[in-house]
Design a protein around this nucleic acid. Structure first.
Lengths: 346, 346
DNA sequence: TTGTAAGCGTTATCAC
DNA sequence: GTGATAACGCTTACAA
């Protein structure tokens, strides 16, 4: 009964091929391919006939086959230090929004702040022939760098502005942002400004923020003090412990700059519990403008970072390289603006 | 100079093929394939020689080609209502953790609570020949359902326990959870229990939670009251406005159950600002146990949902189906436990 | 405008 | 244990 040439046993899940469409429409596969991908290159009559058959039999083009054949894929790989960290979600959304419009797909994975894990994921993604790569981290193993170079795949780094970029960068300067906030605090008259951040091992963002803090202290003639600098884990508890420890070890502290929104909120809650007036007893500043910081009492001074824009610009540049072959973008660095938001906590 | 047979012009990004490895190692591609995928089926000497060449020339197997040829892919598609919603990140992490260990990759996309958008994404994913699909939503267009059925791809639904599952389900019952919390409040003696949730259009989770709330009211002999039920947007502000409106319209309210953690936090902050004692003036309960709820003052009574476990179990079942062909799992429903966490706010 | 033929880089199958 | 050959489903290149 079926008009098409004999096909393999139709196991569940087997789907129609372009060949089947072609047979039923009485044309060659090339015509089907054209009708689908370059409709203008096919006569209207044939195009309609083909599209009708496509609908009838529910034909779904096989992207694996087309990517393999055309040597072009429509997937982009994204590697995040941690998937369950809210600060990344906006960037992912920005990426996703732009990518989707171009019919690209996002592959996502988590490397846990570990460059070796990142390397494995890069390898896996390159094996899947992603046509672009987005890395939050800016620290990579030499092998990872070599593999990326060899693959020729365009890359965007997102988390920081590294000294030696892999390729393109869309980010803000962690150093400058931390410098800006510390300067802001100094200008407000705070003299003993403490600093709490996540561990800086394998995390150049953390290191750069510390650098920015230090530089600001120096420029404002404030003495760095070991007791005022603390590295800790993620989490609200960590912020709480940080502020408690600092106040205990260095009672003269009058401001705490938390290089992370969760730390800042944790610190604020602890102050509230202990009855330390913010900002009178101790001022509090944060990094990253999550909604929460505007709604707590006192609202928390922070730095607004262009998280969503980073995602959008990243996607745009990557797609330009991939689709339009915009080679002039190779190696370009987009240093996006951050903004100090002064609120009640300072 | 090169021993291998003439290969095409080596444009940037061209990578070695299995053929190149085979030539250099003096074996056939099948042997290379075996050495890589079924090492035990190859003699030790040959295996070592092949692997040596693989390293030397930095050969990276082409997953597109292998998937096409073997008719097996190693990607799983995940469709979320919204990417920047923190409640999903734990599930994604659970999924990701398990999937990674099996060498599978995650494709992720956002459908914005819109079944039509979801259908498009499903189509795109099936085009990419994902070997499994994870859907948070449990409402799908008939076409989406048809396409999934036709494809034969195993699916897990995550966000609710639907009356007519597509295939497998790993979730908790929104209805039962909301019922449990409302009952809990009733048992604590609250008589005028209000309820705030996100809009329930295209969101059966919201609808089911409302059902659960209503059923509890009925069983405890409490009169449902229009003024005590409110639907709103996402966000802290929405929670703030919700509690304000309810207290204004129905001053006799003595408890508010927010079917969402962000709403609850927003409501709490508003109460603090207005000087409404929690739980004395109004008790507050939430849905979803985010860290924050434990750290605010008063800490907030809520329902702990197995978000991470949902991701893990989902991945495990999907992989069983895909890898082991565990057909007995088809259509199975895993109804995971939730837990009412009593805290200071009630 | 349409079709033919030859791949794309792998694996299934069967022979040795 | 290893290899030759024919797919997998599509697109490129070229011919008609």
């Amino acid at each position: 009964m079926p008009k098409q040439t004999a096909s393999r046993k139709s196991r569940a899940g087997s789907s129609a091929r372009m060949r089947d469409v072609a047979n039923r429409a009485g044309v060659s596969t090339m015509t089907v391919s054209r009708a689908l991908n370059e409709p203008s290159k096919v006569s209207e009559a044939v195009r309609e006939r083909v599209l009708k058959v496509v609908k009838e039999i529910g034909y779904l083009p096989n992207h694996l086959a087309s990517s393999l054949s055309s040597n072009r894929s429509t997937t982009i790989g994204l590697i995040l230090p941690s998937i369950d960290n809210s600060i990344f979600t906006q960037t992912v959304k920005g990426l996703s929004d732009v990518i989707r419009q171009s019919g690209f797909q996002l592959m996502i994975a988590e490397c846990g702040y570990d460059p070796n894990e990142e390397e494995e994921l890069i390898t896996a993604f390159l094996g899947h022939r992603v046509s672009g790569l987005v890395l939050h981290s800016t620290e990579h193993t030499p092998q990872a760098i070599a593999k990326i170079r060899k693959s020729g795949v365009p890359v965007v780094e997102n988390g920081n502005i590294p000294a030696e970029p892999l390729d393109m960068v869309v980010s803000y300067s962690n150093r400058n942002a931390a410098y800006a906030m510390t300067s802001h605090l100094a200008r407000l008259g705070y003299k003993n400004i403490a600093y709490a951040s996540l561990y800086s091992v394998h995390n150049d963002r953390s290191r750069d923020r510390l650098d920015g803090y230090m530089q600001a202290l120096e420029e404002f003639g404030l003495e760095p003090d070991q007791r005022l600098t603390i590295e800790t884990n993620r989490g609200l508890n960590a912020g709480a412990e940080a502020v408690a420890r600092i106040v205990q070890n260095a009672p003269e502290v009058d401001a705490l700059f938390c290089a992370g929104d969760v730390l800042a909120v944790g610190a604020l809650f602890e102050c509230q519990k202990r009855g330390w007036a913010v900002p009178e007893r101790i001022a509090l500043a944060s990094f990253d403008d999550v909604d929460l910081l505007r709604h707590v009492s006192p609202s928390v001074t922070t730095i607004r970072l262009p998280r969503h824009e980073i995602g959008e610009r990243t996607a745009q540049m990557l797609l330009s390289r991939i689709i339009d072959g915009a080679e002039h973008l190779r190696g370009s660095i987009v240093d996006l603006k951050y903004e100090v938001i002064q609120r009640e906590s300072t």
